[in-house]
Design a protein around this nucleic acid. Structure first.
Lengths: 344, 344
DNA sequence: ATTAGCACTCTAACTTCGAGAGTGCTAAAA
DNA sequence: TTTTAGCACTCTCGAAGTTAGAGTGCTAAT
């Protein structure tokens, strides 16, 4: 649909604009990228590209700026020609550091994810976001109940992935530590290896099935388990808001408010990442492509971490649509793979 | 040092400026606050107040604005005349809501503190900050070690205050669950009721004392305990950055950067709150009074939560020096007392 | 001690103006 | 048919100038 030269011009404009956020003029293109033709020719091409919706002008006598569609074309091309590998040595260095860091914290998944956000935002100067695995994808390892005051017990839930969830529950004051142990033993022997979500459903079913031969133990187990996992704290890690403010894209106040608002209630981001979490490979959402209104003029680059085929959380970068996609994609891909690797 | 009328004028200026951030002129003062005199007289008084350092002019032909010293005088007077009780019904409502919320979450101190920050920032539109109790003030209740993979155990530390700390440790693969139980039993029987910090020191001492008759059990206990508490995650809760951006004080970008920077690495705030944590009652630090450079033109209103006489964390509000001190003080005081009460 | 009056100062907002950048179009050249 | 040179045109941005308004400080009168 686009001939060779037009594509090159589009690429030139996008790259130049990503490089520094100033509208790109025809003269500039001919000078910087040696096409064998004059500015006038480039002007014609750019006019065509604008007509096709890849470029736009901030005002009539300014250079061109990519539209979301322009970025989309750029990103798609990038991925076709597998050119997304940035050769940036600084990045390589940080990547090595991250891999080394993983060595020490691999058995605590939460810390690992926290470090991942930090590394992402640090490297990219965009906002790093990580969403830990959903309950339906974490495997129950064992649960323990520790009584520490009459009527109060601490529930500790371990998953195979190294997640610890804890919650303090109010219970029948009569329950002794032995009772608690028996309940925990029951749950541990019966349900080990299943996902947290599965277990919940199974327990609910067993309620209706065994209604007749009701067992006090099971009844208690169900209650306690439900309370224990109810603490579904929206744990999602975000970092880098401060650094993102130093980007020229956020030099006016309303844009800062916008992005702060977007990450304020993590709820929204959660919704977005959940949609992504089933997809394969690195996902890129550019500006208006974004399903969440609050992110309509920001871009998201995300990837799912996997253990074998099970999605184990999503990592992402959020930044302006004028994003260094090549770098961002490479970064997100790399870190997602680093994390996936530790699961094996 | 200041006569009656001067004080009133100063009050008028401060209150008017807090109310809306525009320099206050002499004519405005006579109109709004019925002093029995003309603008010219007020002008003279204001000139005096400026000379004394309570007021300043943004530029020569503008009204006056309070200096840090002016705010200080205002705050001190407020507290003398015990007028800090805001009668704001909205606030009363939220306060009731917070008290009710506390009922349900009182046994989980972390959630309680999280809710406290949320409530603080929501009510004040400033930034809410809460620092949980320091290790030297939390009482060891019990520790448990749960083996869940060869060479890996989860350590669960409970405190009397309802804090759960957990950490995943790498250990000698040979340790069985029985070994772990024995170690936990030892720690639990020996050290229950002491503070976490104390125990650490005692363990260290016992190393040097019992060097000769070295006990494998104690050696292991020490190692595990240290690892378990090493996870001193800087847990400090901050919330309200987005809302604070809507204050007129932060309508220019560099001020937003400033405040974001201040709360970016929580380290700094931690340092500040630690200094406060010994003090009695509500502390107010105004602008330059602040020991931390990054907060030099912000104000902090803080109070320590107590269980009997033991400091159990600090709650605070951070905002512009043009802060509604009366409201902020009342708020912080109230919430600190709410929390303190739940400890009994 | 207080006040009216007045000259003075400074800001903020609005205009004007010109330089500069970049375009689109046309007609000539390849 | 495609490319290019040339030129008129448009728009932004910043500098400079202007004015209205607010508020002051000072002085002289009350």
């Amino acid at each position: 649909m686009l001939n060779e030269r037009s594509r090159h011009v589009l690429f030139a404009v996008v790259q130049s604009y990503i490089n520094s956020p100033e509208p790109v003029g025809s003269r500039f293109v001919t000078k910087k990228y040696s096409f064998g033709c004059s500015p006038a020719t480039i002007r014609n091409i750019m006019a065509d590209l604008e007509e096709l919706g890849f470029l736009k002008q901030p005002h009539i006598s300014a250079g061109r700026v990519p539209t979301d569609k322009g970025y989309r074309f750029y990103v798609d091309s990038l991925r076709n020609i597998e050119e997304a590998k940035s050769q940036d040595e600084v990045f390589e260095e940080i990547k090595r550091r991250f891999a080394r860091k993983l060595e020490n914290i691999r058995n605590n998944i939460n810390i690992m994810f926290m470090e991942a956000t930090a590394t992402l935002s640090e490297m990219s100067n965009y906002i790093g976001v990580v969403m830990p695995p959903k309950p339906e994808n974490t495997t129950f390892n064992r649960i323990d109940f520790i009584r520490y005051r009459p009527g109060t017990v601490a529930a500790i839930l371990l998953t195979d992935e190294g997640v610890i969830k804890n919650n303090i529950l109010s219970v029948d004051a009569m329950l002794s530590q032995e009772d608690l142990n028996r309940i925990a033993d029951y749950l541990n022997s019966e349900y080990s290896g299943r996902t947290i979500e599965e277990i919940k459903n199974m327990l609910l079913k067993s309620i209706s099935r065994e209604k007749a031969v009701w067992d006090k133990l099971i009844e208690r187990a169900i209650k306690l388990y439900e309370q224990a996992i109810s603490f579904t704290e929206e744990d999602i890690f975000v970092s880098g808001l401060y650094d993102v403010m130093n980007l020229p894209d956020f030099s006016n106040i309303s844009r800062i408010r916008e992005i702060s608002r977007a990450i304020k209630d993590k709820h929204m981001i959660l919704k977005l990442l959940e949609q992504i979490s089933d997809a394969e490979g690195v996902q890129v959402l550019i500006g208006s492509e974004n399903p969440v209104d609050e992110l309509k003029n920001l871009s998201v680059v995300a990837s799912t971490c996997k253990e074998k085929d099970r999605p184990m959380g999503v990592i992402a970068v959020i930044g302006p649509t004028r994003m260094d996609y090549s770098k961002a994609i490479y970064m997100v891909d790399t870190i997602a793979k680093c994390i996936s690797r530790t699961f094996d």
